[in-house]
Amino acid sequence: MKGAKYKLITAAMAAVSLTVAFGGWFLTKELLDRKNAEFLNGTGAVALRSEQTALLTQEQADEAARAFKKHEIPEKQMREILLLWDYGVKEMPHDPKEAQMNMEQAIETGKQWIATLANREIVPKTLVDGDFDRITAQLGTVEIQTELDERLLSRWMLEYRKDDVDINLTIHAMSGEIWYANISMMAYSSLAYAYSSAEMMALMFPREKRSVVDTIDMYDGHLIKVLEEGAVSAHLNFQTVDVDLTPSYVISLWLEPMNSYYE
């Protein structure tokens, strides 16, 4: 009688443990499904990284334009920003912050830069009036840990397109300087070949207050200018490529931090 009772208890406990083992699985699955459903049924709000909206009234835009002053970036800081841009793993779009140019200003800055080149027919003359088929603009920063004021990392990336001309610009949001430019166009619409690399560099990367300590002509069409403190160098590359047997020009401007620079 006692043995039968023990056997019954043993069988019951074994059944309980197996129920926990296998029933627990279905319970876990059910709980996961419920949690998913709860998550999917919810709504949420995300605050935008914005201190002023990009789109302003005319008055506000005028006021912002007056308020925006180009921030002079020291060469060392410029080098640091360029390094952080290289290290950054992810592009984070955001609305303009205080002391950063808004989209209208960025587009206007780009248009003026293009107009300068168009006046010299480095790009087609038709671009002087700033009438493009398509303009896109995006303000973004890189996701990275730094002690630098994060507003210094923001850059406007713009694309101007008209006919066969495609111009990509990166404008530093606080300085308003163009730190990267890439122009591609059909050769027949440009007189770029008439300018030397140095002349094009002077037009595309005007350094009114910054002197250049060294100019290196690496090879035909590639020019490097080392800035005054030796922390940053500006590169200009002029290439002729054939697209569908039609000659095209690709003019690139970019800044690079100097590896040989030590504070």
Binding site: V46, L48, A54, L55, M92, P93, H94, D95, M103, E104, I107, F132, I135, T136, A137, Q138, L139
Partner: peptide
């Protein structure tokens, strides 16, 4: 998705400006 929204918002704004 919010980043996509932000990008799309830039597109709208660029269209309004241009």
């Amino acid at each position: 998705a919010v980043e996509q929204y932000q990008y799309n918002k830039f597109v709208v704004e660029a269209n309004l400006i241009t």
